[in-house]
Design a protein around this nucleic acid. Structure first.
Lengths: 195, 195
DNA sequence: GTCTATAGAGCGATAGAC
DNA sequence: GTCTATCGCTCTATAGAC
């Protein structure tokens, strides 16, 4: 695929400008100017502004699946806790590389409040994490790495913490993310020594 | 104070319309029409659209302090864990009463990405929660209700979970919030039996 | 404090030529 | 596939009367 086609340049430019100024304050004229073409040329490639926003959304959603970060089959009794911590931290690392990501997602979340077309995919993505964590924790229980208890609640908790870390990081909040994730995982894996 | 003055009606109407349609898609004409006055009358009360948004932000920020939900002096050794769970759940309850709240905050977050005027207060608010939790956990340690260890990390974790629950709830995610919060608190209070 | 009327700018999108 | 020119609309904000 030609990754320097006008089509692709438009998408990359749109991603950057949308993140920087927001969907509404980024006009088609701004995108066209930044790409170096005229407005009608932009409309030749995309039927509307919404079309650009939607195609970008599709592309982003492809990359944020649970399976991109966690591979259940690699988890053994010996490395379970350690690997769960490591894979979670890899999400944090990826996040640090792209400042624009959270800004864009914040806007798709806003769109989702008013249009189920966007909320459905966001919910699916988060649900994928929860389902993935459930599977992972069940696997952990089956190999004796942790207790088989409250798996759904634990999975939901991990999902929320992952999502929240993204959020806080994008806002420049200087939290001890590595320590928080580590503590959360340890609390969940080691749980049930008490109560 | 006259709570049915035009000024107040404008703020209440703005809050509702901004939550429903977003800042950008809510025009001054829409607000004026909904309030039942003309556009210039609206401009008599507020110098600009941004002024309405800013005054609303001030009002909202007043209500979301840590101290509104947690009172450190009420926590004793006997009720510590139970009360921490209860007060956290009271935030969830409040959240459930106002669908508009998270939608509005999502937008102030978006504004904060591009204007420190908004991000500063949001960061202060979250920081207030972290500082409050640190104080609360230190108090818990001093009265022997929990271990005096990793207090900052624990406080940050609780802050993130509270914030994330708000977020997920507003999106209609049917999570076991009560159970998640309860488990998080227990994990933090009971921690250090191991490691 | 509220109105009618309007200025002035920017927007998404298109016509039609090349 | 790209251009110049422009349409039609909506927006924030104001002038000036009452």
């Amino acid at each position: 695929m030609n990754t320097t086609s006008t089509y692709t340049v438009i998408l990359e430019t749109g991603y950057r400008l949308f993140a920087e100024h927001g969907f509404e304050k980024t006009s088609m004229a701004m995108i066209a100017k930044e790409v170096g073409i005229s407005k009608p040329a932009l409309y030749y490639h995309f039927l509307s502004k919404e079309a650009i926003i939607d195609v970008l959304f599709e592309e982003i959603c492809k990359d944020i699946g649970f399976a991109s970060f966690f591979n259940v089959q690699d988890y053994s009794k010996d490395n379970f806790e350690e690997k769960l911590i490591f894979d979670g931290l890899s999400i944090i690392s990826k996040q640090k590389e792209d400042d624009n990501y959270s800004r864009i997602m914040n806007q798709y979340q806003a769109l989702g409040y008013r249009n189920p077309k966007y909320s459905r995919k966001l919910l699916d993505s988060l649900d994928g994490f929860t389902v993935g964590f459930v599977e992972l924790l069940r696997h952990g229980a089956s190999i004796g790495a942790m207790a088989d208890k409250d798996t759904l609640i634990k999975a939901q908790m991990l999902t929320m913490i992952i999502d929240s870390m993204d959020n806080f990081m994008s806002y420049g909040f200087e939290y001890g993310y590595e320590d928080i994730w580590t503590k959360a995982v340890k609390a969940i894996v080691l749980e049930d020594a008490v109560k």
